[in-house]
Every structure is written in C-alpha cells, then in structure tokens.
Design a binder for these strands. Structure first.
Lengths: 347, 347
DNA sequence: TTGAAAGCGCTAACAA
DNA sequence: TTGTTAGCGCTTTCAA
C-alpha cells in the first residue's frame, strides 16, 4: 500500500520518527520551528539528524490539507512578455522562494474576465495570498477580494478605493523632474501622452503633469493631455499623429511610458520632425535597451525588481500576521535618466 | 454563487453528496469525468446540479494528497528578466492554464546549485512535471531526473545525453542562412562569437557555423570561433575587444545571440570601426527592440512563444500517458531577419 | 516533555 | 450502479 506509481516521495515523517526512536507527533514538533521549544533539546537534535540522514522532505500537500495553508502565492501579471513586469516578477519570486513560498504565475493577457476566472481557480487551489499587478482604477474584482480577508498586495497599479496595500513608485516626483528638466531647457509647449484612464499609472502621471506644468506657469489645459488607448507603441503613434494633424504646436512630449514614447518618435519621424532638434521626448520606466536607441531615450527609471521584492515582503508580513490591518501605501523613489532625446527647446 | 467568505472554501464533497442524496463516493465519481461513466445518468445530473447550486470547488490539496497528482507544473527558467525566456514562459503558461494546470515559476538566476535545491523542493510539492529551460550540456541533475520517471521536457537548451524530450529551434538552419547571407554579400573572413560551451545553444551554433563556412569554402578554423564566457553584452564586448587587439582581420561577426552582438557593436565603435560599413554583425533571437537600434540588428528570429506552448503540450502528453516512452526532439523553423547591420563586405 | 488518537477532504479498492 | 471502508501524510488537541 506504500508504493503507488509515480510516488512523489518516499521518506515520510513516520520514517524519521522511527529512525529517531520517537513518536511521529514528537518528530513533527521537533521539525517545526514554531513548536520546537516544546521538545527536549536532545530529542530535537536526534530527530533533526535522522531527518537529515534520511533526506526527509515534508509533504507540503499533506501539511496544507491539515493546516489549510499552502505556502503558495499567486502573481497576477497582465503580460509576462512585457519586460517591465518580468523584472517585478523576478524580484518577487526571489523573496518568496527564499521564504519557502512557491510563486505561481498568472498571466491574464490584459483580459479582466480571464483574470476573474483564474483568480477563482487559484483560490480553490488554496493560495495563501496574491500579488496583483493588474489593478484597474475601478476594479470590482479587487473590491470583492478586499472584503474577504485574503492577503493581497497591489503592485505597480493602484485602485481608486485604496483598500489594499500597495507598492508603487513616486511617479508624481518622476513627472515633476521631467517637467523641471524640460522647463529648464526652455520648453513651454509640452504635450503629455497619458496612459489609459482605467489605470492609476495613466491617471496619476497625467495629474502630476498638469500640476507640475502649473507650478512652472506653463499651459496645462485639457488640450495638452492626450489620453492614449493603451500603454503601447501603436497607441503612442496614433495619438501623436492625431496631435500633429490637429495642428497642435509643441516642442516636447512627455510620454506616459517608454512604449508610448517610442510610438511618438516614429510618428514625429514620419512627419519630418527630428528628435530632439525639433521635438524633445521623455519616456517612463527605462525598459531594457532604451539606452541603445539613437538617440537614446531620456526616461524615468523605476526600480521594478525592488517593487516586486517589497510587494512579496508585504504579503509575507500579512500572511504571518493576519490579525493586523494591512493597508500600507509604499512609494519607491525614481530617477530621471537624461539621455539623447531631450535638448534645448527649438524656437 | 462564487463568493465564499474568508476561508478558501467551505462547500465540501460531503455537502454536495448530502444535497444530492447520495454517498460522497458516488458524488466523487459523478464529478470526475474519468469515472462518470460508471454512474447512472440521472445521478450524475443530480450531483452536478447540487454542485452547481452549492458552488462546490474541489479541494485540490486533498485530491492531490490522495491521488499524488497536483495538476501543477514547474517552469525552470534561468532568468525571467530576460525577454527571451519571458516569451517562452508566456506560451507555456497559456497552454497549461487552458488545460487546467497551474504553472509555478522557478527562476534559478543561472545558478545550478540553487536549481538543484529548488527542484528538490518542487518535487516535494508534488509537481506533476517540469519544463526546463536551464539545461546544461553536461547536466548531472537532469540525468538523475531522467532516471526517475518524472515527466520533464527540455526547452531551448538540450543536454548531451538527449535522454529527455526537447523542443528547440532549427538553429543549424538559422546559422546556415546567416553564413549564406554574409557570403552572398562577399564576406570571407567571418568571426563567430560562440555562446558558452556548457550550453547546447552555444555549442550547436558554433558547430553549425564551422560547417556552413566549410560548405562555402571559407576559413573555419579555431581562430574564427571565440567562445564567450556567457550570453551577455559584456562577454560579447570583451571577446570582440580581444579579437581586435589580437590583430584578427575580419569583415563580419556572427554572434551567438543578440546580446553578444550588441556587445560586439560597442567594441567595434570604440575601436573606431563602423557597423555595417567596416564590419557586418548578425545576432540571434530577435529580442524586442532589436529593430529600433541604429542600425537595426540583422538577426535570426526564433518563435519563443511557440516553443513554450509546444513544450507544455509535450509535457501534458507525457503526464496523460505515463507509460509510453517520451524522447521526441522537435525543432521549430527560424527566420533570418535582414536589417541594417549587414551589408556588402568592405574590401 | 512525549504519546495516543483524531481528522483535514478526497478517491479507490472492495463489497453489496 | 452504489455504498462501505480505508487511508494519503501531516498536525494538533488531549491525556499521561
């Protein structure tokens, strides 16, 4: 009855207990850091040695069934192919693994309905918590989940209701540095290509842009902000083309992210405008290879790996202390990386 | 219907059975597609309705403990931050999720010892199988695992022993197209920056290079192949600098991957050589943004998403049919993308 | 400090 | 076709 085909493991707690000459319950207590104190020091040592000698690895399924904890955490990502999120996943996975947790990957492909289905299925799998990078500004799913006491940490994107802990970056300061930089170069007519309005990153950068422009006494009306359909190159291209064909006059573009900036640069080139001589461009995120473009992209660097790592720590903290309220909002500092796409304003 | 407060789940199989007026075992059989045939059609319907009404979601841990199957698959990746692997993960995750499997992410950070520890821990978690992108040419861990009958599929990289199923790309053909292309442009002295010798991708592209060169009657001796320490920009930079300072004369570089190519281009620039006027350069993989460089990189495009998806299918096939032998080697076609870094040979 | 016993929720052999 | 029974391997009362 012991050996069933495809057995995951062979050494069980009973085996360790027998080897150490104790009852399985005692072995369990000796091996569990939380209950180790209740066991005689000598016994602990004997059990530990036996476990070591036999190469015992606990069956996490059995433990999970008993404790209703799985030590598994789900990472909900809109698109793992996007290097932005890949860096975040990396940081989170490292911290989780080191803490003995297993990171499960959910790639929602930017589809909210797929997301709902997958999150439900992950709940059934007994996830101990979720790290969510897909938050929308209005997000019914996350509002529901916030009502349960399931540990969830948002990363990169925030919801309007702010009911869950959030790890992001100080984008307002990032945007402000961009506007300061452009203003110092003599730019006055600056356009903002905003990310979509259903993301906090889109909305907050746009708001920060208008605020920073006003602080410089520069025009910050509705006509200076174009909301793009998505955070993609295509959207940046289309929006910029519309701007240009609408006869808008400007000497600089502050894009909501690097991809929008890339699209904008293509549109400018097609319109016969040079970057940075005719129009300066700034991106956001500093994706890999942005320094390799010609001209290299001026952009705001965000510590994606750190964000992921911090989100993982916040989640582990929640899991370890379920009783306390968890709603901390953490913003990491960003850095303006000045490269070749910005220069003194054309007159 | 979906919302169960707090706990991961509350409706158990017993509840469904009671609601349907049958024994739990019968409910189990009725709900399991594999055993449904043994149950009266009417009973099946009653049970299904009860399950639906109660919002029953099976406890996967309990099932896994009993069946020693978890429907979880581990993806072993050297570095999820590398877009190359991100694409692969994406393809695999999609297929696995659609099949009701959960993809767990293991980022080994290119560290074999970390890999061994993590794989062991994943085995304890009862993974149903592994998709491994970290294979080394000589890989004791994988040889061990090949002896167990744990389902494992290799992707992107192969081991020398070829004992496990493998999904890769036809890199030999890719390299041949590169050499053909360069030869047609009049290049005769072509250097190959090979990837590290402990990877199949490094070795096989190097071998293919020498073979293709000979087929063209071009020099293919040891001095025309430089083995780089890693698949990184830095390694490509260093190797190219060494080549140049060693007085090697060449008009083209075929790099083992895009990063090596990027490093090579930096070294050329620093040495006062222009690309492509003085030296043509070709990469491998066609990472995102390689088309945005100036000049844009000529490279070989590999269908990473398809590779991941195919690997997932092969693994699911193995899991579904454990008895049959699984050692299929599948190579997907590649495509030469000619851009700006290659042109007629300088004389 | 240790042992005995129960049971987490499920499935599979066996019996009816 | 359905029910009975017995665990999967672990943790955790409770008792000693």
């Amino acid at each position: 009855v012991t050996a069933y085909p495809g057995a995951v493991q062979r050494i069980r707690l009973v085996d360790v207990a027998r080897e150490a000459g104790v009852h399985p319950a005692t072995a369990s207590r000796a091996l569990n850091p939380a209950t180790r104190g209740e066991v005689n020091r000598n016994t602990v040592r004997r059990v530990a040695q036996a476990a070591q000698r036999l190469g015992y690895v606990p069956n996490v399924l059995a433990r999970g069934l008993r404790t209703s904890r799985s030590s598994v955490v789900a990472l909900v990502i809109p698109d793992i192919g996007n290097t932005l999120f890949a860096g975040m996943v990396r940081g989170a996975a490292r911290v989780l693994t080191e803490a003995g947790f297993t990171p499960v990957l959910i790639d929602t492909n930017n589809d909210p309905s797929a997301e709902r289905a997958q999150v439900a299925s992950m709940r059934a799998r007994g996830m101990d918590g979720f790290i969510v990078a897909t938050a929308r500004w209005e997000d019914p799913l996350l509002d529901e989940l916030a009502d349960s006491d399931l540990p969830i940490v948002l990363v990169n994107r925030q919801t309007q209701t702010r009911r869950l802990p959030y790890i992001g970056t100080d984008d307002q300061h990032g945007v402000q540095m961009c506007v300061d930089h452009l203003a110092a170069l003599g730019h006055r007519r600056i356009m903002h290509l905003a990310g979509p309005g259903d993301t906090s990153t889109g909305r907050e950068r746009a708001a920060a842009f208008q605020q920073a422009m006003r602080a410089h006494g520069l025009p910050a009306g509705a006509s200076s902000v174009t909301v793009c359909a998505a955070f993609t190159e295509e959207a940046g291209f289309e929006s910029t083309r519309t701007l240009l064909s609408g006869g808008q006059r400007f000497t600089a573009i502050l894009a909501g992210n690097d991809l929008l900036a890339l699209g904008a640069m293509t549109a400018l080139r097609q319109a016969g405008l040079r970057c940075p001589e005719d129009v300066s461009v700034i991106g956001f995120n500093d994706l890999p290879f942005m320094d390799k473009l010609t001209p290299a992209l001026t952009t705001v660097r965000r510590p994606m790996g750190d964000m992921g790592a911090l989100a993982a720590r916040a989640l582990l903290d929640w899991i370890a202390n379920p009783a306390t309220r968890h709603t901390t909002q953490t913003l990491l500092p960003v850095e303006l990386i000045v490269r070749g796409t910005t220069q003194t304003a054309a007159r």
